[in-house]
Structure formats: C-alpha cells, structure tokens
C-alpha cells in the first residue's frame, strides 16, 4: 500500500529542506570566510601613523579580498573580483580566472593566515604598502579534481588605496622575500 502525502505536506517538507540547505550553506560560507586569519602590525608604518580605525578597516577589507580571490580562483568566477580589487590587481586576477576558465584548471586556498606589516603609509593617507607573510594550503584542481597540494609560505607585497567606503587592493604580487 502506498501512502500518498498531501501536496501541502510535500511543499512544507521541500521548504524546510531548502531552508536547512540554505542555512548549512550559509554557515559553511561564513565559516570559510571567518577561517581566514589576518593580523596587522602597523608599528613600523611611515611616514604617517596608521590610525586604529584604519587598521581595523584594512584587516577587514584585506580578509574580504583574499576570500573573494580564493572564491574566484576556485570556482573560476569573475564576480567576486569586482568589489575588493582595482587597478593592476584586478586586471591580473581577471586574467588568471579567464585563463583558468579556458584550461579547466583551478586553485584552492585553504587554512589561510596572513601576517601583515605596514611598511609605508603615504603622507596624505591615500596609499598603504603592506608586506604579507601568508601561509595556506594550496591545491591545484583539474576539472575539480585535486592534482597537487602543498603547504605554502608566501610573501606578498600589497598596495591598498581607499575608496568611498573601503580599502581596495590595487596591487598584489608575490615576492621571494622581503
């Protein structure tokens, strides 16, 4: 004997399932974003001192930038690059994503920690140069399958400039050492 559920019950169950899925997805997304650790040491910034509120903004916006970049390079999506990047950084990452879309490859950055040192803060506060010592688990993907994985300690030189309501990454380049 087959017991049929009323249509209304099915709809309720579907809605509940969708809510659960959305909730879990949201939690996963938040957890992934929150997992990116960013610390800033602005003690050596010159010639201008970095104000505490500016430090908080830079940490927040740099974390957003890396999360967006990770998302863009893992899922080969250009949209995440539109908010936190500008100038050469945006152009370079754009090229990376387009190239990955063509080749079917991807990159996944996991377990990120970033130790930022502010080394230059322009007299008028319109540009800041940061040195990022980053650690992460880097995976290379071929059509979604991990082909290589390694723990990376990388050094990045970062230029950020302020926009109307946030700091944007204008330049991001890996260097062998500082």
């Amino acid at each position: 004997m087959i017991r049929k559920f009323p249509a209304r019950s099915c709809a309720r169950i579907s809605c509940s399932l969708m809510l659960v899925v959305c909730f879990v997805a949201a939690q996963y997304s938040v957890a992934a974003d929150a997992a990116t650790q960013v610390q800033l040491n602005a003690a050596k910034a010159a010639p201008r001192a970095v104000e505490p509120l500016t430090q908080n903004s830079i940490v927040r916006d740099y974390r957003v930038a890396w999360n967006s970049m990770s998302h863009a390079l893992e899922f080969n999506s250009l949209d995440p690059l539109n908010g936190p990047f500008t100038g050469e950084a945006k152009t370079g990452l754009w090229q990376s994503v387009v190239s990955q879309q063509r080749s079917g490859l991807g990159r996944r950055y996991a377990d990120q920690t970033h130790h930022l040192d502010a080394v230059f803060y322009a007299p008028e506060g319109d540009a800041i140069e940061l040195h990022d010592t980053a650690e992460y688990q880097l995976q290379f993907l071929d059509k979604g399958k991990v082909i290589h994985e390694e723990h990376v300690v990388a050094h990045y030189v970062v230029l950020m400039t302020p926009s109307a309501d946030r700091w944007l990454v204008r330049y991001l380049q890996a260097v062998p050492q500082f």
Binding site: G92, Q95, S96, S99, Q100, R102, S103, G104, L105, R107, F140, D142, I147, H148, Q173, A174
Partner: peptide, 11 residues
Amino acid sequence: LYILGPGISTK
C-alpha cells in the same frame, strides 16, 4: 604539465 602563475593557467 600544468603551469599556474599570475595571469596564466595552462595544461
């Protein structure tokens, strides 16, 4: 051979 760098990704 995979090459992944800034702005490049080839197989």
